[in-house]
């Protein structure tokens, strides 16, 4: 059936689409917001990055072997970790070690569970499934992770009096930092909960719309979306949990002293 195929997009069509960017630049210029150059530059960057990633994916798909797929996932994790690290203002001590190990365990575990048990496609490394699914899981978990780490750092700073009072009353590091950890954990889960609550009403999720566009039955696309939302929630919850489990200790010495 004709509808089962996506309409191909040639350069001419892309050019028409890019016309909308040029229109935006024109409007920006009209209002003299001084961001025209940046808008133009960022749009070119977007085009370049996507073309590059498309080419890379083409190579990875063509290779039909697990190694390039895994390398791609490692690179994605590395980049998102680096972005999270530079975005956070006050990093916790040993940030990369704590967040990196939590992401690897949290996202790795959830991705394996999801791909092998829930979706159950073969071969396990099939990039058509593994890359987008792992990508969504890692991307969302990284957001939760940076929120958890950032909020923990702020709470440890703001609750200094409370924590030292508890220490003076005989609390250990875990007990004294419990309110801070609790606040950070809740902060890390809020965006995921908001997304779940708004899904289907405020916004149609990207993966579902993508699948529908490429010809998947809406009923199937919806099921995929439900499943990936569950995976994302699990990944965010596990990763943030692991970060906070290791994270609060970084603020204390072995003698349960609040550092710095």
């Amino acid at each position: 059936m004709e509808t089962q195929h996506v309409v191909p997009m040639d350069l001419m069509q892309l050019g028409y689409a890019y016309g909308l960017i040029l229109l935006s630049v024109g409007l920006a210029r009209l209002r003299r917001i001084g961001q025209e150059k940046r808008l133009l530059w960022d749009s070119l960057r977007m085009v370049f990055q996507l073309l590059l990633v498309g080419y890379l994916l083409h190579l990875v798909f063509a290779a039909r072997s697990p190694l390039p797929v895994l390398l791609m996932l490692v690179a994605m994790t590395g980049f998102s970790l680096q972005i999270a690290g530079t975005r956070i203002k006050k990093r916790m001590p040993k940030f990369y070690r704590v967040v990196g190990s939590s992401i690897i365990i949290g996202c790795g575990g959830v991705t394996c569970y999801f791909c092998l048990l829930v979706v159950g496609y073969t071969p396990w490394f099939d990039p058509r499934y593994l890359i987008p699914l792992a990508g969504m899981i890692i991307g969302n978990a990284m957001n939760g992770a940076s929120l958890a780490a950032e909020r923990l750092s702020a709470e440890m700073h703001d609750r200094r009096e409370e924590i030292e009072t508890a220490i003076c009353l005989g609390a250990n590091a875990r007990q004294a930092s419990e309110p801070a950890v609790r606040a950070a954990y809740s902060a890390s889960l809020i965006p995921t909960m908001n997304t779940m609550a708004a899904t289907g009403i405020v916004a149609l999720p990207g993966m579902m719309t993508g699948q529908i566009l490429s010809g998947t039955e809406p009923a199937v696309a919806v099921r995929y979306q439900i499943a990936i939302m569950c995976a994302i929630t699990g990944a965010v919850a596990i990763t943030s949990f692991l970060i906070l489990l290791q994270g609060y200790r970084q603020y204390f010495s072995d003698a349960h002293q609040l550092k710095g």
Partner: peptide, 19 residues
């Protein structure tokens, strides 16, 4: 043990923090 020490040596901090 630091926890034991802090039970034997109690401390009142400058700003009274109330839970």
């Amino acid at each position: 043990d630091p926890l034991e020490l802090r039970r034997r040596v109690a401390m009142v901090l400058q700003k009274p923090f109330m839970f």
